[in-house]
Design a protein around this nucleic acid. Sequence first.
DNA 1: TAGATTGTTAATCGATTAACAATC
DNA 2: TAGATTGTTAATCGATTAACAATC
Lengths: 209, 209
Amino acid sequence: MSNQNISKSTLQRLPLYLNYLKSLPDTVINISATAIAEELRLNDVQVRKDLACVSTSGKPKIGYNTEDLIRELVAFLGYDNNNNAVIVGAGKLGRALMGYTGFKEYGLNILLAFDQNPDVVNEQELILPIFRLKEICGRMKIKIGIITVPAASAQEVCDLLVESGVLAIWNFAPVHLKVPDGILVQNENMAASLAVLSNHLSEQIGKNR
Amino acid sequence: MSNQNISKSTLQRLPLYLNYLKSLPDTVINISATAIAEELRLNDVQVRKDLACVSTSGKPKIGYNTEDLIRELVAFLGYDNNNNAVIVGAGKLGRALMGYTGFKEYGLNILLAFDQNPDVVNEQELILPIFRLKEICGRMKIKIGIITVPAASAQEVCDLLVESGVLAIWNFAPVHLKVPDGILVQNENMAASLAVLSNHLSEQIGKNR
DNA sequence: TAGATTGTTAATCGATTAACAATC
DNA sequence: TAGATTGTTAATCGATTAACAATC
């Protein structure tokens, strides 16, 4: 397939384009990369290059057919086919993500959570003991694991997920995970985001002194 | 101050260093950039440059004093002084973030949430109606706003936060927010992360065909 | 002293932006 | 046709990595 060498930065912008396109009224039949770029405050060539990875239906002077482009983005991003996932770590964050229904829209289907602590295990709420992880993930052919355990146990959990056949890991712990080749780790580093926020504030406050 | 031109990429790696340093046993008096780099699978020069933004106490042959470096990182990242914040959007994600106690460690103190929907407003749970946002943020001198509303209303909420004196916005909605100069928007784009995960999976699966 | 390590200057790499030809 | 827009090739920019001198 064509999605061989799409850069991570491109990939991360695609959902923004899609979201913007979806927000447009039905009356917008065609849309140009230039218009998208202006709206999202991006460079127009960048948008054009990004879209070229996803679609070939752009026409000079006209732009893209909005509906077609939406369809192509949805397909490319895999929002139309469900990816099953499990969460490891049923603390506050884990349970929150589990309860969050918004991911379905992105094709992510969180089936189960696992936790080490017997006190939080609760079959009713689909929180199972961690010793059952390997068996269940294997049987259900789970390919995505979400890590929401404390930093100290993240690597251990990661190894377990990899052993269980998971191919992609969404890591919410602020650590670097070591994985074999072919396994992807996507870090959702909230601590990193907070560092950026906090640094901005101290700069702003420093300025006004 | 010295933190004038620290790059965002550097800033985002600092919490990883800090976390690793904290995980070390007390017996590790000194630590080298080389050792940190190896552990985190980064380039050693990169780590050295990053640390140079934060500390000047590195000594050839010895490295950094672990405790000193931890202290310097904590101070630089502002984990030692509390930043008060409010959340707008008390849906599942918003309430989850509110309930998540882990942010305190990073100096982020979420005081209140606001929501448009009278049904979720609940003074007991510190969820207030949105019309009180401006007055309260102004009075409490809130500088950080967290947006967890649906994409369609994110810009509106953003404008309101800016009006209320907020200087930094942590945006969980998958949209580009337009803000005046001097206001920082840090996007926590879960949709973008999912795009990367999903793309990896379809590549892997394509390979095995 | 010798060697590990720091910090700096130069080279490389990848992503973004600019310039431009092709075209509906 | 003229002009807006696409897609491509070249230039720029910033971040990462390599090379190296300084030093405890």
